[in-house]
Design a protein around this nucleic acid. Structure first.
Length: 662
RNA sequence: GCUGGUGUAGCUCAGUCGGUAGAGCGGCGCAUUCGUAAUGCGUAGGUCGUAGGUUCAAGUCCUAUCACCAGCACCA
């Protein structure tokens, strides 16, 4: 006999080898039917596997997230079977459950297109209707390799070969269809249900490695029932309306165009927003003891070689050959060879300049001017640094991933024993500022040493340890991102989420023992000896472009008054009151309010609709009544109706709301 | 960079079998002067991303290229 402890703490006795399914039915008929799998001592296993000892047992049903994840995983298997039935010769690889659904990666010569989705979905429904039981078998390595080799499943063979020697190979069958899988699985395909939809097909590298073959990944979404599925699809539609690229155009914030791919054309309204954000940051960091600098765009190759960028980052840098243009013109005007190329008289003397991709080496140059003492530390040097990086074409994305960006960058030069206090202060400042922008949920990761890196392992040991300790000291919880650090040091990453749930790294703090060494920065310590400062590279917003992109999606374009490019529009009821309307506009302008007038001979309903669509915080309608009493009829964005208030009263209210957070 | 898709008026999009390029919104003009999410009428906008090719004829078919979209890889 074994003793089973249920989640409510009650204990029951069963014969040894009883299954999760048996337990579910022994508790109740309905639970038995609803059971999908069973959690035994925190490990989820199939319902029909025997339980051989005393254990904590929980029956997994669709009510739990774990149950939902199970049907998503099984939907992937069902899709794989469907695809192989419909498209013989397609090889299967891996297919996990993910947030909102699943994907499965296939190898097939011909591409899948969305027009294949209907057929695949229908076949999936057929398989689900067949309600094939999932059965688990344990095979020997040799048998498994032979089986998949015979089937021509090279990718599966590779997976098996790479599994640890002592790992038990579990094979799952759903009807006739066989797959290598760790499990667990549902009792049968019928449990997957019908609330699923194939979403998109895209390429994905085998094992995430760009040197290996590209597979075809089909994504699907799966929910408990049709209602949940519809709700999710509706959510996606709504999210589309928040897309910063769409709002950027609708609200006349910025545009992008082919001739400057990856660089933003900021329009007056967008630039107003940008400047608000920039000035806010400037105020905040100034209060936090930073000094602001500005450094060159073009810097000689020599400095980048010293810093290590030339070695480790060159593929992302825009590099310019510094030739004498007058010579070039002379050559072009006199020569008939048509070469029109820069022919340098002496190739040995050619200089190369790089447009800066980062500000750090330049900041070290400022640090190195004159001598520094321990009394100067920590020296917090900030710059709204305009950086260019030649990002791969496929990486560009609206204003979130661009080739020209402005970082709210700073480098804190400090001593080793200041790392923890500086990190703590930085994290506090970052969280405060994010909160002012309305972000409460921030994902935190610590990224450790990458393969391509500068500095010794000892240095990295020290840096990683220091950063983790400092972050722990701030009380933030974080995930580790192994191998994702910068080439000069490990980093803390702060991630924000866009409208459709993609996360973007914004803030960062990177601990660097390498650059001060390479660029020979030093200060005189209390002991009178020379010491290396530590550099903390840090950004709060990350890049203004990306952050503003996120900000647009976060507020769906309806900015709080302090950020709104246009804070109020004065709209006259009829042209008879244009004089008064203009007077109101002038008064508001005098009070520093960003206000526009709408004196067109349109109906007030038309004007209200238009400015509402532009998400202007306040629409002030003025007509006869308002003129008589020196008031305005205020319509607040997001609410119906209006409130008549004295102009002074309105000014007091909006001025208060327009204040930048302190 | 890779895989797939898309590119037609300022915007959103239609354009069948290859046969003289269309709608709605917006713009402009005129009328209207109106009290909280679209007033009416009229009118002007296009080298169909770019470059080649096939064809009597190309928005439509083919090739190349650029940009964008989704995902992957890379990254703030």
């Amino acid at each position: 006999m074994i003793t089973v402890t249920l989640p409510d703490g009650s204990k029951r006795e069963y014969t040894t080898g009883t299954t999760g399914g048996d337990i579910a039915y022994s508790i109740g008929e309905r639970l038995g039917k609803a059971a999908l799998a069973v959690k035994v001592n925190d490990k989820i296993i199939d319902l029909n596997r025997p339980i051989t000892g005393d254990a904590d047992v929980a029956i997994i049903t669709l009510k739990s997230d774990e149950g939902l994840e199970l049907i998503r995983h099984d939907a992937a298997h069902v899709m794989a079977e469907a695809v192989q039935e419909l498209f013989p010769g397609t090889q299967v690889t891996i297919g996990p459950a993910i947030e909102n659904g699943f994907y499965y990666d296939f190898a097939r010569e011909q591409p899948f297109t969305d027009s294949d989705f209907e057929a695949i979905e229908n076949k999936m429904r057929e398989i689900i209707k067949r309600d094939e039981p999932f059965t688990r078998e344990e095979w020997s390595r040799e048998d498994a390799i032979k089986f998949f080799k015979d089937k021509g499943e090279e990718f599966k063979v590779e997976l098996i070969q790479d599994l640890p020697k002592d790992e038990i190979l579990s094979i799952y069958k759903q009807g006739e269809w066989t797959d290598l899988c760790r499990g667990p699985h549902l009792p049968s395909t019928g449990k997957v249900g019908t609330a699923f939809k194939l979403m998109k097909v895209a390429g994905a590298y085998w094992r995430g490695d760009s040197n290996r073959p590209m597979l075809q990944r089909i994504y699907g979404t799966v929910w408990r029932d049709k209602k949940e599925l519809d709700a999710y699809l509706h959510l996606l539609e709504e999210a589309e309306k928040r897309d910063h690229r769409r709002l950027g155009q609708e609200l006349e914030l910025f545009h992008l165009q082919e001739e400057a791919a990856g660089s933003v054309f900021w329009h007056p309204k967008g630039w107003t927003l940008y400047r608000q954000v920039e000035n806010y940051v400037r105020n905040q960091i100034s209060a936090a003891g930073y000094v602001e600098v500005k450094t060159p765009q073009l810097i000689d190759r020599k400095l980048w070689e010293k810093s290590g960028h030339w070695d480790k980052f060159r593929k992302n840098m825009f590099i310019i050959k510094d030739s004498d243009n007058s010579e070039l013109e002379d050559h072009e005007s006199t020569c008939s060879c048509g070469c029109h190329g820069a022919k340098d008289k002496n190739e040995d003397n050619v200089r190369y300049l790089a447009v800066k991709p980062m500000n750090c080496p330049a900041h070290v140059q400022i640090f190195k001017q004159g001598t520094k003492s321990y009394r100067d530390l920590p020296l917090r040097m900030a710059e709204f640094g305009c950086c260019h990086r030649n990002e791969p074409s496929g990486a560009l994305h609206g204003i979130m991933r661009v080739r020209q960006m402005v970082q709210d960058d700073a480098h804190i030069f400090c001593s080793e024993d200041q790392i923890i206090s500086e990190t703590k202060e930085f994290c506090a400042l970052l969280l405060k500022m994010y909160k002012d922008f309305g972000f409460e949920n921030v994902g935190v990761k610590i990224a450790t040493r990458p393969e391509l890196r500068a500095g010794t392992d000892e240095t990295w040991d020290k840096a990683e340890k220091g950063l983790i300790e400092a972050t722990e000291a701030t009380g933030l919880s974080f995930d580790l991102a192994e191998g994702e650090g910068a080439f000069y040091g490990p980093k803390i990453e702060f991630h924000l989420t866009d409208a459709i749930g993609r996360t973007w790294q914004c803030g960062t703090l990177q601990l660097d023992f390498v650059l001060p060494e390479r660029l020979d920065a030093e200060y005189t310590g209390e002991d009178g000896n020379k010491h290396r400062p530590v550099m903390l590279h840090r950004a709060i917003l990350g890049s203004l472009e990306r952050f503003i992109g996120i900000l647009i999606e976060h507020y769906a374009g309806a900015f709080p008054v302090w950020l709104a490019p246009v804070q109020a529009v004065v709209a006259t009821i009829t042209n008879e009151f244009d004089d008064y309307g203009q007077q109101v506009v002038d008064t508001l302008k005098k009070h520093g309010i960003r206000v526009e007038s709408d004196l067109r001979s349109e109906k007030i309903t038309y004007k209200v609709r238009e400015h509402s669509l532009k998400k202007v915080p306040y629409i002030l309608a003025v007509g006869g009544k308002e003129k008589e009493t020196n008031s305005v009829a205020v319509r607040t964005f997001g609410s119906e109706g209006q409130k008549v208030m004295g102009l002074d009263e309105f000014i007091a209210m909006i001025t208060d709301q327009a204040k930048m957070p302190a």
